[in-house]
Design a binder for these strands. Sequence first.
DNA 1: GTAAATGTTCGGGC
DNA 2: AGCCCGAACATTTA
Length: 265
Amino acid sequence: MPELAEVEYYRKQWNAGLGKRVLRVEVHENTGLFRGMDAKEIVRLLPGMPYRHSFARGKQMLFRFGAQAWIGLHLGMTGKLRTEGLPFRPTRHDHLVIRVEKVALVFRDPRQFGRVQFHRSSKPPDWWTRIPAAPTEPGFTQEAVQAFLARHRRLPIKGTLLLQTGFPGIGNWMADETLWQAGIAPERKTGELSHAEMTSIWKTVRNISRIAMSTIGKDLSDPPRDWLFHERWSRKGLCPKHKITLNSAAIAGRTTVWCERCQRA
DNA sequence: GTAAATGTTCGGGC
DNA sequence: AGCCCGAACATTTA
């Protein structure tokens, strides 16, 4: 379930390998994770380099090896990172295994919607540098959000919240949580929101992201009990405020859950 | 057996 | 050109 906070959690899972030298890399090279790249390049070039650092921004992660090697990872729908002690034999969905001293760094992704990128340079890749500020960063300002919303006036606000070019890290459950806490119906056109509602979107996204980071992002523990989060997964979820059955429909192409009493149409 | 799933990209039709 | 929509990717789970 990798959105902003889950990505942060999974990034840290490889920390057990920090500072250690790569001994060997194993890949399932014909899987979708390596689309558009040559997986063998990683296998050939990474050994000998220390795993130095990792970063996460939105749903993207970047791992630094040696002086001029970077691996970018996206978890897609079902990707997970973990480490394994030795001996370790990868199984069917463990598509990338980076063996460092005493530990194996594993990227598992059954559906293969995730992605691996390799970049050789002393500088991080352009695609990384261009990611806009995430909701937990100072650059995620009210002005930036207003300007972004103004550029997507015809899209339902639910769809706008899912655009990674404006809300890096926000995914389906965070978008629903935001709209529920902000009291805005998901099918509202972005351009029809009032100034106060746009401000509320900005504040709520920041608040939810901060709290999610300190719970889910820390150790996958639950966010606050009164969040929609706990109710939105089952077909008969109840609004935490009104205890009425939540609505569920596809909006902007994605399953959307909301409370018609909380959220102004 | 069928539908749907926490994401993104691509191509066709307008 | 640009916007919008649906399909596609591959697998598991309800």
